[in-house]
Every structure is written in structure tokens, then in C-alpha cells.
Design a protein around this nucleic acid. Structure first.
Lengths: 196, 196
DNA sequence: CAGATGACAGATTTCAATATCTGTCATCTG
DNA sequence: CAGATGACAGATATTGAAATCTGTCATCTG
């Protein structure tokens, strides 16, 4: 059993599985070790504390979304406004899918997120950098026009404005009837605000 | 002692005081009754359950903000864009003041709010109706121009867009350096989106 | 007799004992 | 000797018995 070498990656996979099975309150390091067929001491060789292990799992989960969006940004065929629309729609769709497909697992990650605000801040920072990139590109190409261009501040404003459609705290409203219409109204408002 | 008649209003005041003193977890109906110099049975004559009493306290607290904003809306000297700016700034200032002046009491009300989502929904509905009124007024006077005017949906979008500056969940960020600049960037974006 | 009271039953919370988990480290093993 | 182990101490969580609180209602009182 467990003849493969014990890697950080394998521990993260096992931890995710244990979290899925037992939930955030009951998931413990001994179970993770058992799932890997090793002693819990070995897990501590890779992660100094349980908190650090959970932080790494949280980061991995958030990074999946960042990567999906990053991929989209390499599409050169889109104008900046189209790219921004697509980016916002993809972010909303990804979050809504996660929340809708497996509500229990989503609730687990909401707990992890609340435990790891530092990781979330970094994640938010990455997303806003992606927005910054799109906005800067749009200004350069004359596809956005702002009275006092400040891409960083505008990126933050766009992120804030769309909060209801990406902050997990609002996940309960994402299944509501009329939500797509409300999402469209908000993105329209934001895109008009960028004068595009 | 307590020669005045026992009114709903006096019970609400006493409950607020007990909540302030003991916090949401420890505040109980017997303490409210004691504060009023009556038996707890008398309190149950006015409010069927403890939950209903707390709901009424929550509604009263939220209504104070609604009323402050409603007052502002009677000012006929403002254009719709100026009114909207003022409305958003007043809402943010009111919330930030509540959160900053007495963080413990604010935390208490955050608990009450999480217990009474129905009351919060009604409150949000009232705020969006105020926004709807401003937007409709602005469209009529030609101070806002929208491609497909739908004031109700636009009001919702404006409310959603400014979430970070009125949803108590974000209260922790309201003291952060640079928050005013971010608020200005967001309101500028929204107002440009209304083409004003 | 309208409105207040407080004893009471059932629901909920508190608290302290018990059990489980985290993180360390001396020891083991391939 | 690099990496794994598991016994252990201190920290954290669980549990169930005792204390408190909620909501009712028969009784009281001005």
C-alpha cells in the first residue's frame, strides 16, 4: 500500500478528499495520513501545522479559478470590452457551478476561506491584476475611455461593482429567478461606465 | 416603579439596551422585563416570541437608515445625479459611522441581521425603491440616459454595484486606508454608466 | 374584566469530565 | 542517514448532567 513517494501534491489531494468526506469540522490530520497509508508524523514533514495544510488546500482551490480566467485572457481575438464581459461571465459561471454542483463541498470551502483571509486577499489581488490588464489594454486601444485614467483603481471598482456575482457570501442568491437578468443589468452598467 | 404604561415602544427601547449591555447571546426576555420593572409574562403580551421581539428591534434599527435617506430625497434643489451621489455617500457614511462608533453594538446587530433575513430583504427592497425613484426622476428630466430604460432593474444594479460600501459583511474594510478613493472610483463608474 | 403575574413544563445553554486530536521528537528502517 | 514512525504532552472537542431560559396559562388585581 502507498508505494508511491509521499509528495506535497498527494497530501493535498488526500486532504481535499477527507474534507469532502468529513466536512471542515471533522477533517483531521490522522484521517489524511490514514487515507495515504502513512503515519500522521509524515504529513507534518511536509506541512508544519494543520492550519498550513488547510491554507494550501484553499489556495489550490482558488487558483483553479484564477487559472481558468488567465487562460481566457490569452485569447487575442477579443476586444477589451468583449474580453471584460467574457471574464466577468466566466467568473460568475465558475463560482455558480461550484456552489450549485456540490453545495456541501462549497460550504466546506466557505469555512476554509473564512479561516484563510490572507490567501483570499492574495487571490483577490490576482483577479484585480487580471482586470487591470484588460482595462489597460482597452485604454491603449481606445476601446475604453475614462476622464482620469487610473487602471488599478478602475479595476478595483469593477471588481467591487460585481461583488454580488463572485463573493461566496451571496451564493444563496445565485440560484434565484431573475439573477441572470440582474447580472446582465450590472455588467451593462459597468461597461457603459467604461464608456465602451 | 415603572408607572408608565407598558408600550411596544418602551419594550423595544429596553430590549435594545439589554442587547447593548449583554450582547446577542446573553440577552434574554427576563432581563428585558426586569429592566422595565415588569414580569416577563407581560412582555409576551406584546410580542408572541423572543424571535419576534428581536425581529422588531432589527427592523427599527434598519428603518433609522431608511428614514435618514428618505429625508434626503425630499430635497428638491438637487439634480438626479447629485441626489444619487449624495444618497450613496449618506448610506455609506451612516453604515460606517454605526460600525466605527460602537463596534460591539454593530457586531450585535450583525447577529440580529443574520437571524432576520426576511426583515433585511424588506429593508433592501425599500432602499432599492428609493434608488428607483431617483433613477426614474433622472430619466424623466433627461439627466440620465439609458439605451433600454428599466429603472427597477437599474436600481437593483446600482444597489448591487455599491454592495461593498453598504453590506455590513464588508464593514472590516471600511476603516482601511484608501477606502474613500475606492468609493469615489466606484460611484464615478456607476454614474458614468448612467451616462450623467 | 383588561391587563399583569409567576409557577411550571419543555427547550436550550452551560459546565466540567472525558475523549480525541495536534504537534514533537527520540527511535527505527531501508 | 533521509525519511518514516508512533508514544506522548498539551490543546481542543465531545458529551451528558445540571442550570437557565422560553413560552403558557390559571390566577390575581386595580
Amino acid at each position: 500500500m502507498a508505494t508511491e513517494t509521499l509528495t506535497t501534491e498527494r497530501i493535498l489531494e488526500a486532504t481535499e478528499e477527507v474534507l469532502r468526506r468529513h466536512g471542515p469540522a471533522k477533517a483531521n490530520v490522522v484521517d489524511v495520513a490514514r487515507a495515504l497509508g502513512v503515519s500522521h508524523g509524515s504529513v507534518y514533514r511536509h506541512f508544519g501545522t494543520k492550519a498550513q495544510l488547510r491554507e494550501a488546500v484553499t489556495k489550490r482551490w482558488l487558483d483553479r479559478t484564477t487559472n481558468e480566467l488567465q487562460l481566457l485572457m490569452t485569447d487575442g481575438s477579443l476586444t477589451a470590452p468583449a474580453m471584460l464581459r467574457q471574464w466577468l461571465a466566466t467568473l460568475f459561471a465558475a463560482k455558480r457551478r461550484k456552489a450549485g454542483d456540490d453545495p456541501q463541498l462549497f460550504a466546506t470551502y466557505q469555512v476554509l476561506i473564512s479561516e484563510n483571509s490572507r490567501v483570499v486577499e492574495l487571490h483577490v489581488g490576482e483577479l484585480i491584476m487580471q482586470l487591470d490588464h484588460i482595462i489597460q489594454d482597452g485604454i491603449t486601444k481606445g476601446q475604453f475611455s475614462l476622464p482620469h485614467p487610473d487602471p488599478a483603481l478602475t479595476a478595483r471598482a469593477v471588481f467591487d461593482a460585481t461583488n454580488r456575482f463572485h463573493d461566496p457570501a451571496y451564493a444563496g442568491e445565485w440560484q434565484k429567478a431573475g439573477i441572470d437578468e440582474e447580472f446582465r443589468a450590472l455588467t451593462d452598467l459597468v461597461l457603459r461606465g467604461l464608456n465602451s
